[in-house]
C-alpha cells in the first residue's frame, strides 16, 4: 500500500520532537477525526534553521510530517510557504489516493507555523492571504471518493 520511502520515513521519522522557545508553532488537524500535527520552527534571518514535529495520525501522516520537515529545513520562510502537499507526496514516491489528504495536513502545519511567525513579527508573506489556522481542516471526508 505504501511506498518503501513512506515506510522508511514512518519507521525512522526525521525531526521528531519539540523546540524549546521556538520562533513559531503551528498546530492543525481536527482532533475529532483523530489526526493532529504540530510543527515547531526556529527561524533566523528569515531562514528556517531548525524544525521539529509531533503527529497523532496514520502512517502517511507521520511520513509526510517527516518529509515536510526535511524539505523546509534550511529554506527561507517564503520558500517553505510554497511547499505543496503534492511535492511532499511526490518526494515520498507517492501516496495511495485515499491517503493524499494526510499530506495536506503537513502543508497546513507548515503554513500554520509560519502564520504564527508572521503575526508575532508583523510580517507579510505571499501565500498566507486568506489562511486561517483555526479553520477546521475537515480532511476526513474521503470515504466516498470512488
Amino acid at each position: 500500500m505504501y511506498s518503501d520511502k513512506v515506510m522508511e520515513h514512518f519507521m525512522n521519522p526525521r525531526n521528531v520532537g519539540e523546540i524549546e522557545n521556538p520562533d513559531a508553532v503551528g498546530q492543525v488537524g481536527n482532533p475529532k477525526c483523530g489526526d493532529i500535527m504540530k510543527m515547531y520552527l526556529r527561524i533566523e534571518n528569515d531562514v528556517i534553521t531548525d524544525v521539529k514535529f509531533k503527529t497523532f495520525g496514520c502512517g502517511s501522516a507521520i511520513a509526510t510530517s517527516s518529509m515536510a520537515t526535511e524539505m523546509i529545513k534550511g529554506k527561507t520562510v517564503q520558500e517553505a510557504l510554497n511547499l505543496s502537499n503534492k511535492a511532499v507526496a511526490e518526494a515520498l514516491d507517492g501516496l495511495p489516493p485515499v491517503k493524499m489528504h494526510c499530506s495536506v495536513l503537513a502543508e497546513q502545519a507548515v503554513k500554520s507555523a509560519i502564520y504564527d511567525y508572521a503575526k508575532k513579527n508583523n510580517k507579510q508573506y505571499e501565500g498566507l492571504e486568506g489562511f486561517d489556522p483555526n479553520e477546521e481542516h475537515d480532511h476526513h471526508h474521503h470515504g466516498d471518493e470512488e
Binding site: 505504501y2 515506510m7 514512518f10 483523530g34 489526526d35 497523532f56 495520525g57 496514520c58 502512517g59 507521520i62
Partner: peptide, 8 residues
C-alpha cells in the same frame, strides 16, 4: 496514538 501507525 492512532491505530494505523500502530498496525504498520
Amino acid at each position: 496514538i492512532e491505530g494505523e501507525s500502530l498496525l504498520l
